[in-house]
């Protein structure tokens, strides 16, 4: 089976600015929940965006499910993405139902019974049953995050990337999210990659930890990959 994510000598950063990390290499081989951790501004979200192909790497290469990240994506690639909720345009009042429908990609142009059933299922699963017709922006921070996760998993992705989903959730919802991610990883074979600051209560759910370290007087971070379950991933220094 092809590895979920492979990266070689990867350096992240924005064009015209300094690199954010020292080169590092590794491979995610198994479905599981993978944490990306590190101090503010070290490049965690940039790494996520680079793996997704939204950001061109400053150096090195990435493959997703055996191929280089596509320049133009399709829903059939099997990628799901949950950006930080403030990335959603807060002037555009789309209903929660229509918001989740976007998760079907261009197929949402043709409204089908199958899509409607899946949306109802997701609304119930993420405790948003009564909110289908409300504007997305009328939801609380936690409800927004749940709606964004529901949208990202609507098309059954193989790889799911989440950017700081725990920050806006209370303890109960954090547990619900992590339990659901664990279920997706271990019963549906989804590889879940999450950026966040605090995974301490959920260490048992994690397969591996990608950690950014900023040394004293160092302008760029070094990155380590620590496997918490045997053979789920490998890392090598470049």
């Amino acid at each position: 089976m092809k590895p979920y994510v492979t990266w070689n000598g990867l350096v992240c950063g924005y064009a015209g600015r300094d690199a954010l990390n020292l080169p590092f290499s590794g491979e995610i081989r198994e479905a599981g929940v993978y944490a990306i951790q590190g101090p503010n501004g070290c490049g965690k979200s940039t790494l996520l965006r680079t793996w997704l192909g939204l950001q061109v790497p400053r150096g090195g290469s990435v493959t997703l499910l055996g191929s280089a990240p596509a320049r133009v994506h399709t829903i059939s690639e099997g990628l799901g993405y949950v950006p930080q909720f403030h990335k959603v345009n807060h002037f555009f009042h789309v209903s929660v139902g229509d918001f989740i429908r976007q998760g079907f990609g261009p197929a949402s142009r043709q409204r089908t019974q199958e899509q409607d059933d899946r949306i109802h299922e997701l609304l119930a699963q993420w405790q948003l049953d009564t909110d289908a017709n409300r504007s997305f922006h009328e939801l609380s921070g936690g409800q927004k995050t749940r709606a964004m996760v529901a949208r990202a998993v609507a098309s059954f992705p193989k790889l799911l990337f989440l950017d700081e989903p725990l920050a806006s959730l209370d303890t109960c919802c954090q547990k619900m999210l992590m339990d659901n991610m664990h279920d997706l990883a271990h019963h549906r074979g989804v590889c879940v990659v999450m950026v966040d600051h605090h995974f301490e209560p959920f260490e048992r759910h994690l397969s591996a930890r990608v950690a950014f370290h900023r040394g004293h007087n160092a302008e760029v971070c070094s990155v380590t990959v620590e496997a918490l379950r045997p053979s789920c991933c490998v890392s090598s220094s470049s």
Partner: peptide, 8 residues
């Protein structure tokens, strides 16, 4: 960004 990943 979500739209780009989803093939719009």
């Amino acid at each position: 960004e979500f739209a780009a990943i989803s093939g719009f």
